[in-house]
């Protein structure tokens, strides 16, 4: 199996007051093209730190990241900006992740313009196509971000991430803030986009229900380390680590709607 992303020995310490906290302590993981790896774990286990380091928003103290065969941590300036077309992220709270003054069209236009995906004249058409791609009416293009619903906002965030046809999208709690029905819609959209475009996901979540629906493999984190990794179905059915067992135990059973026939 080829690898798209190979992370080795990622470590990151934060200084808080006069004591140091190890947010990450030797995290290694890999993702294949078109694959979904779920990163789960209790709050504070370091999941977002992994995401932020992958997106080069935070610099690690140690470790190596190879993305598409390139040493990601060595890139700077224009070379780093260029590779971002291939490596995107969807944030948990789209309201916070969008410029409050932006319009839907403007948000999707940014990546198209910056990376020169399509010429200026064709951009409105490309924006409309992307909106349709994520299941949004093209009439929303002129709206401001506070004029659309939370689920619509997250679809816009996905369209913005998808605009440059990236090989990997990091989703940090991207469906956690959505209500159950909207969450199911977004998960099925993500699965559909993966099928059609072959995009890989690093899917960060607390929610094993969502993970079960979308992930091929699971990595469980605790205290800045990966404590268990494996096939999604296997890990959820029989977690080997204490953290994994605690997470599975904390996930409520899905309600059963069908009637029992006696």
């Amino acid at each position: 199996m080829s690898t798209l992303l190979q992370v080795e020995g990622l470590s990151k310490r934060y200084r808080r007051g006069n004591q140091e906290v190890a947010a990450l302590d030797g995290v290694s993981l890999s993702i294949a093209p078109g694959e979904t790896l779920a990163l789960v774990g209790p709050s504070g286990s370091g999941k977002s730190t992994v995401a932020r380091i992958l997106l080069r928003l935070v610099e690690p103290d140690a470790g190596r990241i190879s993305f598409n065969g390139e040493a990601l941590l060595g890139l700077r300036g224009a070379a780093l900006r260029a590779i971002r077309a291939n490596l995107q992220m969807v944030f948990q709270d789209p309201m916070a992740a969008f410029n409050p003054r932006a319009t839907v069209a403007g948000l999707i236009d940014d990546p198209l313009r910056i990376h020169g995906i399509v010429g200026r004249a064709e951009r409105p058409r490309a924006i409309a196509t992307l909106l349709e791609r994520v299941g949004l009416a093209t009439e929303l293009a002129g709206r401001r971000v506070h004029e659309i619903s939370g689920g619509q906002r997250q679809r816009v965030a996905i369209a913005r991430a998808l605009a440059t046809r990236p090989a990997l999208i990091v989703l940090d709690e991207a469906v956690s803030a959505l209500d159950v029905l909207v969450r199911a819609d977004i998960l099925s959209l993500l699965a559909e986009l993966q099928r059609d475009e072959g995009v890989a996901y690093l899917f960060i979540s607390h929610d094993l229900g969502a993970v079960r629906a979308i992930a091929h493999r699971i990595a469980i984190m605790d205290g800045g380390r990966i404590v268990e990794q494996g096939e999604a179905a296997t890990v959820i059915a029989a977690p080997a680590s204490a953290t994994g067992r605690a997470l599975v135990a904390a996930t409520p059973e899905l309600p059963v709607f069908k009637e029992t026939v006696s």
Partner: peptide
């Protein structure tokens, strides 16, 4: 986050 998001999409 929206500044992080701008960096992520490769804005100068």
């Amino acid at each position: 986050d929206y500044v992080a998001s701008a960096r992520v999409i490769g804005m100068h």
